[in-house]
Design a protein around this nucleic acid. Sequence first.
DNA 1: ACCGGCTGTCATTTC
DNA 2: ACGAAATGACAGCCG
Length: 654
Amino acid sequence: MSVSYTDSEVLRHFMVELFTSFIFSLIFNSRKTVTANLRRRVTNHLSEINVGPSSAYIQTPFHILRDTLDGNGVHPKCPELDSFFASRRLLDEVRSLGSPRFPTQLNAWLVHQVSATDRAEHGPSTSDDTDSSPGLEDLRDEAGCDSEHLPARGQEVEQTSPELGQGPGGAEACVFPQQVDEAKVKEEEEAFPITQLAHSSMLEQESLFDGNPILSDLEHRYASPPSSTVVDWSNLLSVTDFDELDSLVNLSELDADITSAISQDVSLHDATVSSAGAFGAGSGRSESRTVAQQRRTLLRLELLNSTLSDASPGMAVGLAALPFASVCNLTGNASSQSLLGGCLDEAVFDQINQLGLEGLDSIDNQLMNSLGCVDSQGLEDLDSDSGLSLESSYGGPASPGSSEMSSSSSLYCEDEGGATGYSSDVDSLPSKGMMDHTTVWPPVDLSENVWHDHSYSSPAFLNKPSLKLPQKTEAFSDDDDDGSQLEERELSRDELRARAMYIPFSVLQIVNMPVEEFMEILDGHGFTPAQVTLLRDIRRRGKNKLAAQNCRKRKLDAITGLQEEVERLQAQRDRLLREKQLTAKTMGAVGHQIRQLTRDVLARLRDGSGLPLSPERFTLQCGANGRVVIQPIRRPVSASAGNKTDKRKKGKKQ
DNA sequence: ACCGGCTGTCATTTC
DNA sequence: ACGAAATGACAGCCG
């Protein structure tokens, strides 16, 4: 086919081409910049796992990720997996918005535009992932076939990127009103010489322009290797299915969302870790705990006060007879009292003093003799009474009702002692232990160990004086049992056990001391096997208690984080839907303008017989470098559908 | 009496 | 092998 042109027509044609080529340059560069930015950012996200080629078809890296990470030495709790699955979840969510997959016509076109050589070598879904800036790499790839355009186009991209990067959505990237275009035309004319534009309009198909000497001259003057990348305008014009554009928008938004998702995950992870760390540090937790504990302690002390005020002298003696230096120190040591000020109010001490602690010395020996049998049974019994879970654990998995266990304490006490080995060794504990530990008991024990025993100060128990042990001696049980119970209700079960076994360390000390120190203590203090067992159990239980608290805190944090993520994803989905609608509107306007412009251009062109080119028979195509050519439509009816399927086939092949 | 939340504890697994 | 941590399950207490 040959087309004849007059000089004025040629000039007009070039002007039209100039204008249209700028429009396409804008579109291409915008799209290319979006795609390049997208690819660069996705690549950055995935760079840590560097699975090789990636592209705008980001599902491919995720599949590779899955294949790579599934069970290949990655711990299920690996944060990378969290990020990966969060990203994949986000991808699925974005997909669920109703948009088709990426290898649609427009996306194929965009990827096609981004890297012609990539497509030739790796296909639209692959590109070198090792480069930190794939967008620029694509430009370099283009330079391979059009090297003289590289600087100008590189500048274009560099100039366009910030514009696109300013707005979060695609609205800014998709605005193509004519006035803006004209302004940009003026701007870009400076950076994009008109010769290159003429070049861009280089009519590569010689058959089309063989008859025109000027065009031929221009063609030869600005001859360049024919671009292998030629995009049919109908590709763009056929973008009436804006879901394809939507997929692009979603893709760009997905990228940003992957960022946020990963950061969200990481922040969740960090929050979890930090919270765990805070708990591990212990100080913060103990501080936060203090208020509640003090509140509980006050309640308990109120109860204790009220009970003590009604207590019989026997109870007082029993309380005073507690063979613990901590209690003795309470009465005689002001410093200790000050240390305990947070836990026991002065009224308690006054009552204790009034109840005749002076007689403690006189009954000390008798008490020590009786403690051998009382401690092992009475205190263990107290433990059993106070904690039914303890019974279930020590006595066996099947835990009968609490009332039964309480009433049959005389029976299960031996079982429990046998299970734990406490009571038998308590019997063997001479007063030596008492002598030693009386001086070794740290004064802070009570204040430290009052916390977290809310379940042991049940009023029900305090209202049950019938829980005396039948094995106890008359004098001791009557005098000591109630009082010691009252006092020991304030202590944790492990604290009671420790006291019963004359362990000279507080539970907190046992739990918090380093392993080496703990082992030294176990080895160097001449503890009996029962004491060693108790020490280990106390340490284990204490650490497990903290671990359980941390675990629950983490669980709550995780739930909170997931709820926040759900809210964030819902907001993101709404935003994406809004942007999708906006993008569809924008692209509709752009498509309309382009169709109109195409008709304009074709109407101004003349074929060999001087007739204007029919838009039904010809179309405008734009190359990757912005060159616009006229091409006859081969299959005008099903051009778009055929192109679409072709692109898909190409994408699948590659 | 029932229920839900909190807590401690145990058993088990994992590191 | 041992200890620590994490966690599910269970039970008791409490409001």
